[in-house]
């Protein structure tokens, strides 16, 4: 089996009927530089458990990553500036901004600091787990959206299998990794040492 076939196997999208239908729409009209603006993320068919608890860290909710172009300032505080517990309603997770969706219709506030280029887009990655209660069916979904910076623009995922995960420069499926890094017990660890089989690299913060 060649590598392209292998990727296709891993990235086979779930049936569309199983996936909540999402649209992202530009609400603001007109788009004035310096004025408070808003776009809205609407998810139909959202799992009600995603909305169950607004106080705890509900990581099973979908996460919306927002990759804003130059000239677009999202309104909200990076989550790294806060301590737990985290209010996901008003805070972005990190740059390029990530946000937990807390309702079927979630407004995202932003401001233009300069007039957008005609081809400017805000990109969104919507990521979530489905069927969490069934270990045999549980699966991970990523969808990519690109919204034009024009009044009334709307974005829907063309293909649920689109899997760009992060913003520019982030590691994606298909990229190659090679690391040699110091371990906490004083040894250098080379990824090459694990090349006999698959490796799961788990990033973390020790102070959480």
């Amino acid at each position: 089996m060649n590598s392209l076939t292998a990727f296709a196997l891993l990235l086979t999208p779930p049936a569309q009927a199983d996936v909540p239908q999402t649209t992202i729409r530009m609400q603001a009209a007109p788009l004035e530089v310096g004025a408070p603006l808003e776009l809205v993320v609407r998810i139909d068919g959202m799992d009600p458990r995603w909305l169950a608890d607004r106080t705890a860290v509900q990581v099973e909710r979908p996460i919306l990553q927002i990759d804003a172009p130059d000239g677009v300032e999202l309104i909200g505080a990076p989550i790294a500036e806060r301590v737990m517990p985290i209010d996901f309603e008003t805070n972005y997770l990190r740059l390029p901004y990530g946000r937990k969706l807390v309702a079927a219709r979630t407004p995202i506030a932003f401001e233009l600091t300069e007039a957008p280029a005609p081809d400017a887009r805000i990109a969104f990655n919507l990521v979530y787990w489905l069927d969490n209660d069934d270990a045999e069916k549980a699966r991970f979904v990523r969808q990519r959206f690109e919204l034009a910076l024009v009044p009334g623009a709307e974005a829907t995922p063309a293909d649920a299998s689109v899997t760009n995960w992060g913003g520019h420069g982030t590691l994606n499926v298909g990229d190659t990794v090679d690391l040699t890094l110091p371990s906490h017990d004083g040894f250098d660890i080379e990824l090459d040492e694990f090349r006999g089989g698959p490796v799961l690299i788990v990033t973390y913060r020790a102070h959480w």
Binding site: F140, G174, D175, T176, D178, L191, R195, V199, I201, V202
Partner: peptide, 14 residues
């Protein structure tokens, strides 16, 4: 975030 890397060092899932 967790990255599944195959034996050739290629990211297979994020």
């Amino acid at each position: 975030t967790s990255y599944l890397i195959d034996a050739d060092g290629v990211v297979r899932q994020v």
